[in-house]
Design a protein around this nucleic acid. Structure first.
Length: 752
DNA sequence: TGGCTCTGCGCC
DNA sequence: AAAGGGCGCAGAGCCA
């Protein structure tokens, strides 16, 4: 059995009991935690203790070998060799307690010593700088490779240029069960070089990138599309372990036995080192892909076939962006500036502090203190609600703070002209962004634009979506799945009452809920009547109680506790609910919310009963949650012991199922509408339940087709094994040039 | 000055 | 003691 000297920190010693179940019987561990002065000391101690390998979770020790400023969390999983001894860097032992997947990582990292033979043996890292006289030799190497990994480096932010690209050619020889590797870096300094790069990318050889949507966005600017971009290590790793990090350095530490963190080398000013850094990125991407091939489980392949193709419509829509009405933006900005100036002045006078900044948590905390609310922690919306409830004067102040913060948030996040490029708002959409398979969004890779999934929805005083307009000759459209997650929850759980509620077209879902939860006749909450065309219209009579049931439904769905519900509803709303429902006036607010949640549980008993139990049992029993589409999440958390883990695992199935169906829809819209009609259709972002798009004026048919593409029949087996097929209905809007002004399709005039 | 963490808050 | 899911970004404040 391998004998490992494990050097830990003083802090780590408190958590050593967590190590035992992980390493017992697999390797002999000799522990040490006395401080060192020299790296060599560690080697000697290890040898004295009869160990043949070293592991350490100590950052100071790391720095002793690799220099000041080096960070342990960068080097986790890295292995170096000194004086003939291997040294492995592992995360702080405490994280076995605080990070759900850490046990898995510890097992993985120590396996580098326990079963070294199981790990991919990688060749020595070598690379060449592009030399025009070697073009033919390199074209031979690259074109005969089994796959080529590619990675670009980009210049300073605003330039939006590529500085160089690296290629690693891997040729697998199945007969001898071996492979050869060759890496080249091509600087983007000469047209000749660019032609070579373009030729390489045009080769039919499969390409692999690490998050290649970024690289390809830049390559497309140079008119260098990649042919056969088939693999992506970031997507593959996400499909394998959606809960784990997926940066290249992490993946490398996870997959390659002996490799040293190199990501800090990108900051070099030495050009040759810079190219070498690029070469390392390529080399590690290629080696990581090989390592993934060795272990990639069937479920991950299945996930990859669902997830990776979504990258292509995302790449298209990222390059399209949305046109911005600069005047509308400037008007909105001015409106906010005026509000801020006025409110800030009044607030500062009110609290008699001319320099007071309500956005400062520190200063606002001091204000809370002065107002006699020193027991309230935080200064956000919920703490403000609490402080405001204590005194009418507090409330006036809190309202002002809230208003200023809200206006500033809008102004600073969404109303700045400098996010524009080509008068457009660009964004990026990342299919590998979340644990559930939903897309995440952030600003464009071209250092501009916005996160597109959190644009404020229109309010009475301001409409940010006024700024988003269609291209000349086009209308905007948006198609939105209706109560998608509620439907998914209904069919996944198999709660018959919930299924009936979401499927009853003759009633408004939240109105129906309000009636069931609170025992109020439905027709006192919503008036529903049939239209001539067989559709139903629902006029809300009692908005308050309907909103209440919306909150209850939403909170209860995610396993919210009564205290948090008081916070999110707000004190006033809970008091109103107490009155509205005729509950005893002496009931504390917590009890009111408890009552609301109980009503949900009584109305839909399967959801919080058998369904939650099944989610939990699946995770405990198999470590997997498998959705109806086959999408599989490897789960490292413990839903029995840790409530947060239970919450995320019961939230996963509906959120994930919805994401999967929406991703299928996005792909369908791309293939069936955009590709045949590129002149008449523009693909916009997918925003969780909805798809935004533009269609040429007069092509209403294309807008209707989006709705069709999204209404995908989904077959679901419920908690009890009963199978049903259902469709999430899609509401269509369009026929306007402004995102804020889209018209419900039910009100469209028929196209001529 | 730049880099980092924390707090707060926008959306579904 | 208390425990709502999933994201990303701006500003404040602190440190080097």
């Amino acid at each position: 059995m391998k004998s490992v000297y494990f050097h830990v920190t003083e802090e780590d010693t408190k958590y050593l009991s967590f190590l035992k179940p992980i390493l017992n019987g697999k390797c002999t561990v000799r522990l040490g935690n006395t401080p060192l002065t020299l790296g060599l000391e560690l080697i000697l101690r290890a040898k004295e203790a009869g160990c043949t390998a070293i592991a350490t979770s100590c950052e100071t020790t790391l720095q002793m070998f690799l220099g000041k400023g080096k960070k342990l969390d960068d080097y986790e999983g890295s292995m170096i060799e000194r004086h003939g001894m291997e040294i492995l860097f592992v995360p702080p032992v405490k994280q076995l307690l605080t990070i759900p997947y850490m046990r898995h990582l510890y097992e993985r990292y120590f396996d580098k010593y326990i079963h070294p033979e199981r790990w991919l043996t990688i060749p020595k890292f070598e690379w060449e700088l592009f030399d025009p006289s070697q073009v033919d030799r390199w074209m031979d190497i690259l074109s005969s490779a089994s796959f080529v990994s590619c990675d670009i480096e980009t210049g300073p932010e605003g330039d939006r240029v590529i500085t160089c690209i690296g290629f690693t050619a891997v040729r697998i020889d199945a007969a001898s069960n071996s492979f050869t590797v060759a890496t080249i870096v091509v600087p983007f300094t000469d047209l000749f070089n660019l032609v070579f790069v373009s030729n390489v990318l045009s080769l039919p050889v499969p390409k692999v990138f690490q998050n290649g949507k970024y690289d390809n966005a830049y390559l497309l600017r140079y008119n260098m599309p990649t042919i056969n971009y088939a693999f992506d290590t970031m997507y593959m790793f996400h499909c394998w372990y959606s809960e784990l990090p997926k940066t290249l350095d992490f993946i490398t530490g996870y997959l390659l036995r002996k490799w040293e963190f190199w990501k800090d080398e990108s900051k070099t000013t030495d050009l040759l080192q810079y190219y070498e850094y690029n070469a390392k990125d390529c080399f590690t991407t290629a080696m990581s892909l090989l390592a993934i091939f060795l272990e990639f489980p069937d479920y991950a392949i299945k996930n990859y076939l669902m997830e990776f193709p979504v990258m292509f419509p995302c790449m298209l829509t990222e390059a399209t962006g949305i046109l911005c009405d600069k005047k509308a933006m400037a008007d909105n900005a001015e409106k906010m500036e005026l509000t801020i100036a006025k409110e800030l002045h009044e607030l500062q006078q009110m609290v008699n502090a001319p320099g007071y900044n309500p956005n400062s948590p520190k200063q606002t905390g001091q204000l809370f203190h002065i107002l006699g609310c020193k027991d309230i922690k935080g200064t956000g919306k919920i703490p403000q609600d609490k402080a405001g409830a204590r005194h009418p004067l507090n409330k006036v102040i809190m309202k002002k703070i809230e208003k200023i913060r809200g206006s500033r948030k809008l102004a600073s996040s969404y109303l700045k002209e400098d996010v524009l490029w080509n008068d457009r708002i660009y964004y990026s959409l990342n299919p590998h962004g979340t644990d559930t398979g939903r897309n995440a969004s952030k600003e464009s890779q071209f250092w501009c634009g916005l996160q597109i999934q959190n644009i404020p929805r229109d309010r009475k005083d301001i409409q940010v979506k006024d700024q988003f307009i269609s291209y000349s000759g086009f209308y905007m459209g948006e198609a939105d799945g209706e109560q998608a997650e509620a439907r998914d929850t209904a069919y996944l759980s198999g709660d018959l009452k919930l299924i009936a509620a979401v499927e009853d077209h003759t009633k408004d879902f939240h109105g129906y809920n309000a009636s069931s939860f609170f025992g109020i006749p439905y027709d006192r909450i919503v008036k529903s009547y049939a239209l001539a065309n067989g559709l139903w219209k629902h006029d809300v009579l009692d908005k308050d109680i309907r909103d209440l049931s919306k909150r209850t439904n939403h909170g209860a769905n995610y396993n919210m506790g009564p205290d948090v519900m008081v916070d999110t509803m707000g004190i006033e709303n809970v008091i109103r609910a107490r009155t509205l429902l005729g509950l005893p006036q002496h009931w504390p607010l917590r009890k009111v919310c408890d009552y609301l949640l109980t009503k949900y549980a009584e109305t839909y008993p399967v959801v919080k009963g058998a369904w939650y139990d099944k989610c939990s049992a699946d995770v405990m029993g198999t470590g997997f949650l498998i959705g109806p589409t086959g999408w599989t999440r490897r789960c490292f958390g413990d839903p029995v012991k840790i409530k947060h883990d239970l919450n995320r695992y019961v939230a996963h199935p509906p959120q994930s199922l919805n994401a999967m169906v929406m991703n299928q829809a996005y792909r369908k819209v791309f293939h069936e509408i955009y590709l045949p009609n590129p002149q008449d259709f523009k693909l916009g972002p997918q925003i969780h339940d909805s798809i935004v798009f533009q269609y040429r004026i007069g092509r209403q048919d294309l807008a209707w087709k989006v709705k069709e593409c999204m209404e995908i029949p989904t077959k679901v087996k419920d908690t009890f094994g009963i199978e049903r097929t259902f469709i999430v209905p899609v509401a269509l809007k369009g026929e306007h040039t402004r995102w804020s002004k889209l018209v419900d399709a039910k009100e469209w005039k028929q196209a001529a």
